[in-house]
Amino acid sequence: MSTFIESTDPLAANKATALRFLDLISADDYDALEDLITDDWTMVGGPPRMPRGRDGLAELRRTIGPVEQTWQPELVLAEGDLVAVRAVNSCRMESFFGVPGRGVEQIFTATFVMRIRGDRIAFTWRNADDLGRLLQLGATIKAGA
């Protein structure tokens, strides 16, 4: 896990907020996540038609289901109110997009871009190698007719 450091440097503080988001996801600490997002927080690249704010966070947790995971940040960039984090995830879950997990460890990369408002996350864009995850679980690709 990354270390949460308070800073008077706005970019460093924004980076710490973004890294805290991944730490809390890894820890399955959605109660603390509720305090880290704005009331109108929006996520793109998560479950379809996710509501905003805490309801969206609850939908994310419901959709993901039980999971053991660890996010390991590899690159963190900040510019203004935006922070980009490229990270590697190692996880085990019951299923992913309906494909049984069977205890298989999935390792994949993802990039998050987060808009920070004050000391909270207002917007999260997620782009992850979900196809790679499915293939790790034994899913196959079948060409259409």
Rank of each mutant, 00 (worst) to 15 (best):
M1N: 09
M1G: 15
M1V: 12
M1W: 00
S2I: 09
T3S: 06
I5F: 07
I5T: 15
S7L: 07
S7C: 08
T8N: 15
T8R: 14
A12E: 15
A12G: 01
A12P: 02
N14P: 14
T17V: 15
A18Q: 03
L19H: 09
R20F: 05
D23W: 01
D23E: 08
D23Q: 03
L24Y: 10
L24G: 02
I25E: 09
D29S: 02
Y30I: 00
L33A: 08
L33I: 11
E34Y: 00
E34M: 07
T42W: 06
M43P: 02
M43F: 06
V44I: 14
V44Q: 03
G45Y: 08
G46C: 08
G46P: 04
P48H: 11
R49D: 15
G53D: 03
R54Y: 05
D55E: 15
G56M: 11
G56R: 05
L57F: 05
E59P: 00
E59G: 04
R61A: 15
R61N: 09
R62K: 14
T63K: 06
I64A: 05
I64W: 12
G65S: 07
P66T: 14
E68P: 06
Q69M: 14
W71I: 01
W71M: 05
W71L: 10
Q72F: 07
Q72I: 14
P73H: 05
E74A: 03
E74H: 14
E74K: 11
V76Y: 08
L77V: 14
L77C: 14
L77A: 12
D81F: 04
D81H: 00
L82V: 06
V83L: 12
A84N: 10
A84Q: 06
A87E: 04
C91N: 05
C91T: 12
E94G: 02
E94H: 10
S95Y: 05
S95W: 02
S95G: 00
F96K: 01
F97P: 00
F97T: 01
F97I: 00
G98C: 01
G101V: 01
G101M: 07
R102H: 15
G103L: 04
V104R: 13
V104C: 00
V104G: 00
E105R: 12
Q106R: 11
Q106H: 06
F108A: 12
T109Y: 11
V113A: 02
V113K: 08
R115C: 13
I116V: 14
I116T: 08
I116S: 00
R117T: 14
D119M: 00
R120E: 01
I121Q: 03
I121K: 02
I121G: 03
A122L: 07
A122T: 02
T124D: 13
W125I: 01
W125R: 10
R126D: 12
R126F: 14
A128K: 02
D129I: 04
G132M: 09
R133N: 10
R133Y: 01
L134A: 11
Q136I: 10
G138N: 10
A139T: 12
T140R: 13
K142S: 13
A143P: 03
G144F: 09
A145R: 00
